[in-house]
């Protein structure tokens, strides 16, 4: 019961805290220096909260003494719960398990909805690209006749990078190559899957602060990550120049964003030299990742293990 309370408290605080457990990966400098690790930490933070909720329900349904005392009985309870042949013993356990079932169902439902919607939109988009654009083999991208300077990618099967003639006109050839390398980094890195996961969780949990922030941060971090990947093969100055060129001038008529905060950070990052994390910082990040993922399970395991030990020590003391 204590384990359940601890997990519920953790989930509640982590979900609603303005910074969340991924707060360390927020606007902090290290996240901008190691975007890939920061994306992993955000996703782990979300997974951790979901796992805590599920494990809390499990801890309520299966009392700790059962887990520790007789393993056979524990597995029997598990088998019983899984097969659903017999109803759980108490109304409390029943409620906890139905709640867990609802959480799982909602995550699966929202995940499927996000994938299906995105897949449909991408398919329609690619059909139109086939008709409206022309594939430029040399650039390795689809070129669209359009005055506004825009570059983007449509991921998924037969994923493609798209650039408008407006962008080709306003960028030097090296800058075009750098921008397209950025787009291909999105495609090759399957960044859309991280975004889809974040979107699904955010939708499943009613856009609670943690999930909403994870979503917006991951959207920002994949851009930084793609810049870094592009910078391996292209000069950082070209990437920076392309960023400034594309983010200057009138906004595309239908674009939403006004502020240039991310654009500014990206340009600054590209103008300065790379600052990869030191070994110590990287280890700390990985440790945080491990703690987020393994923590909830450890909390549940502790009462079980301690009662298991107590049982054995008791047995031993008899002899």
């Amino acid at each position: 019961m204590t384990a359940a309370a601890v997990l519920v408290l953790y989930a509640a605080v982590a979900t609603t805290a303005p910074r969340g457990p991924g707060g360390g990966a927020g606007r902090s400098r290290w996240a901008e220096r190691a975007p890939r690790l920061a994306i992993a930490v955000w996703l782990a933070a979300c997974a951790s909260v979901v796992a805590s909720t599920l494990l809390a329900a499990f801890a309520v349904a299966v009392p700790a003494p059962v887990v520790g005392h007789r393993l056979a009985e524990f597995f029997e309870v598990c088998a019983m719960l899984l097969s659903g042949w017999r109803a759980p013993s108490s109304p409390g356990a029943w409620a906890a398990l139905s709640f867990a079932g609802l959480v799982v169902a909602r995550v699966v439902w929202c995940g499927a909805a996000v994938l299906v919607e995105a897949g449909r939109e991408r398919r329609r988009h690619k059909e139109m690209l086939d008709i409206l654009g022309r594939h430029d083999g040399e650039l390795g991208a689809v070129v669209l006749d359009h005055g506004e300077a825009v570059a983007y990618c449509v991921p998924g099967r037969r994923g493609r990078a798209v650039i408008t003639t407006g962008a080709l006109r306003s960028l030097a050839p090296e800058q075009v190559a750098a921008v397209l390398a950025h787009e291909r980094a999105h495609l090759r890195g399957r960044h859309h899957l991280a975004l889809a996961a974040a979107e699904a969780l955010s939708r499943a949990f009613f856009r609670l602060p943690l999930f909403a922030r994870a979503r917006s941060e991951i959207a920002r971090l994949v851009e930084l990550l793609a810049d870094d990947v592009a910078a391996r093969g292209h000069s950082r100055a070209h990437i920076a120049a392309a960023l400034v060129r594309l983010a200057t001038g009138p906004a595309p008529a239908s674009a939403l964003g006004a502020g240039g905060e991310t654009a500014l950070i990206r340009v600054r990052r590209m103008l300065g030299p790379a600052h990869p994390l030191g070994r110590g910082e990287r280890l700390a990040g990985l440790a945080a990742l491990g703690a987020l993922l393994a923590g909830p399970a450890a909390v549940v395991a502790v009462p079980g293990v301690s009662s298991f030990l107590a049982h054995h020590c008791h047995t031993i003391s008899i002899f």
Binding site: E117, A247, T248, S254, A258, L264
Partner: peptide, 30 residues
């Protein structure tokens, strides 16, 4: 063709919310 292209760009840029579908960046203006 221009109208279709404009419409495609409009829907792409406006769906900034659905980034799982198309990854559009460079939307921000300095």
């Amino acid at each position: 063709k221009e109208a279709y292209t404009a419409e495609l760009m409009r829907s792409t840029l406006a769906s900034g919310g659905n980034q799982a579908a198309t990854l559009v960046h460079f939307l921000e203006r300095l």
